[in-house]
Simulated scan of single mutants.
Amino acid sequence: MAILSSLIFLSLSLSSFLQVVRPVDVPVPQYTLNLDLPPQERWAHIVKDYAALYPLLIEELYQIIPKPIVVAITSVTGVLDQFIPQPYADEIRGIAKYTNSTVGETLMGNLAYDFTAFYHGGKAKRGACTSILAVDNNGTLFHGRNLDYTFKDLIRNFTINVEFQSKGQTVFMATTFAGMVGVFTGMRPGGMSISLDQRNTGEIWSNFYDALKTGFHGMVGVVLRETLADANMHYNDAVSKLTSTRLIAPCFLIIGGPKAEGVVITRDRSKAIDVWHLNETWYLVETNYEHWKPPPATDNRRDPAIKALNSIGRNNITADTLFIVLSTPPVLNTATSYTTVMSSGSPSYYQAVIRYPPLPDLDVNDHI
């Protein structure tokens, strides 16, 4: 609740600069996942709490993933180990078991990003993610993100914080969705913080072709989880890996280090096409468009975020004031499911809340 108290106080003092929304914020449920358990049992205590909602989630997925791909996904489940690397294949089997879902449906849920990040035929793009890296005068890096999604009312109910632990020690933490083995937002204390913003380019069939060609080993969320989980991988190693590892789908990857270092990686499926470093300014703002191009007038969250950051100034940037930036319309919008602010250089700091902003509804055609 520290964020909420600070938000109210700071937003009053900054009201002359920013239009800050005071939404109804709900604490994110907290869970611990024991990596020392057999993979099929790791998620049991978590997903049992959400099993009643799974039929609604599956119904939504059938609406956004083309039917031929749904058929293809479900057809590989009999030979899952040939397509999904371990331990994720067994985690998916366990999630299916404890949610009374089929393995195919669970796999489809885990591939939702990989099969929705493509060019949407020029439709208006509103209500998608925002990630921000900002450094204070002491060299502390803060990493904030809003995750926005089309069926936000449903996935708000699946949003959880998970501490992934081994031998009783936290390996990394993530804000994720119950039953998703990959992660889109996470932090390894003292290592790095990572967030994913969707990039819509290319054809959905290119995603599917790459999925088959790589044996689904390029699932974006799984690659990010593997990066966070590897204790031997430091910030520079992570940047190197995430610029070159083949992925099923295009994306923007935002990575913060434990010091005043960070990048936005613009990815296609095979490699990075741009790496934007935090070295000439004290912040980077990424939404869902290439930073070297102007954002579309129908979805300009970038400029309001930049205006808010400049109004606050580097002297006043903190985790709480960054939260205020992420609460400034249209950075915050009705598609915003959750907000996370983290700092891998300050390992005790990791805050996330589920958002219910009182804003006019937007025509949301993008995901994440």
Rank of each mutant, 00 (worst) to 15 (best):
F323S: 15
Y349Q: 06
P360Q: 02
S344Q: 01
S343N: 03
P360W: 03
D320N: 15
Y350D: 08
S346E: 03
I317Y: 02
N316L: 01
A335T: 10
M342R: 11
S337W: 09
T336E: 03
V331D: 11
S344D: 05
S346G: 00
N333I: 07
P360L: 00
V325S: 13
P329C: 13
I324M: 15
T328V: 14
T336H: 11
V353K: 00
R355V: 00
D320W: 09
N316C: 04
P347Y: 08
I324P: 15
L326A: 03
D361G: 10
V353G: 00
P358N: 12
T318R: 11
Y349L: 11
D361F: 05
N316V: 10
T336P: 14
D361A: 13
I317G: 12
D361E: 15
T336N: 05
T334Q: 04
Y350C: 10
L326V: 10
Y350R: 10
D320V: 12
L326Q: 12
P347T: 05
P330G: 12
A319D: 14
P330T: 11
A352R: 03
P358R: 04
N315I: 10
Y356L: 07
S337N: 06
S348R: 09
S344M: 01
T336S: 14
P347D: 04
T340Q: 11
S346M: 10
T318E: 07
A352F: 06
L322F: 02
T336G: 01
S346D: 04
